[in-house]
Design a protein around this nucleic acid. Sequence first.
DNA 1: ATGACTCCCAGTGGGAGA
Length: 261
Amino acid sequence: MKLATWNVNSLAVRLPHLLAWLAEQQPDVIVLQETKLTDDKFPAAELQAAGWHAHWFGQRTYNGVALLSRGAACVDATRNIPGFDDEQARVIAATLPASGGADLRIIGAYFPNGQAPGTDKFAYKMRWLDALRAWVADELTRHPRLVLMGDFNIAPEDRDVHDPAAWAGQIHCTPEERAHFQALVQLGLHDAFRLFEQPPKLWSWWDYRNLAFRKNQGLRIDHILVSDALKPLVTACSIDKAPRKAERPSDHAPVWAEIAL
DNA sequence: ATGACTCCCAGTGGGAGA
């Protein structure tokens, strides 16, 4: 089973890119971030025509998430973090019914950017992360096979940053954000990317400005975290830079993982 | 060449992203 996450930075603009990547890479499940579409505008018909079941949760201009699955539809969908009052559409979760074994719980999330330490947006990011951790801990008690994936807006370690000195203490790289990432890991989750030897300087996001992609100046901020029960079943994880080379690309590249399910 | 973005909603600029 192949799982993927991609911040598409406007699904209205990126639908052709998405359909092309899905046809080429044939994942079984993909979660999307920054769809930037109200629910009435979600391209459900186009995706269905391509063979995809979908759950979606969006708003205009900003944010917006979706969860697509091929073959079986996901059930028990949840929008945002239960009990956390949030005006921003950032989380979609659902369960992929078992094909022999136990169900697979999938959480797709668009973590807040946070802007800069000391701002209201950073405080919101911290509150959101607190709520997410408490909820994921609860989900794990019900779903031992769980995947948390999406745009975390956190570079977990210096090796996930093209220029750690320049980024030290900056948004995505603050000790507070990294502590939150570790707190998620300590729930019994594993960064699928780091389960394998990886080429150095492989990022998931490059700034549109300053020819950052051409110079490979990026960050690894999009992640797939798998639960303890899934860890031994993960057979591969990588980041596909190819869509970042397309015409009018998203600033993020898709991350994917193979799980023997 | 020591520069250099893209999205949205607005409306011919500004905020946000990361």
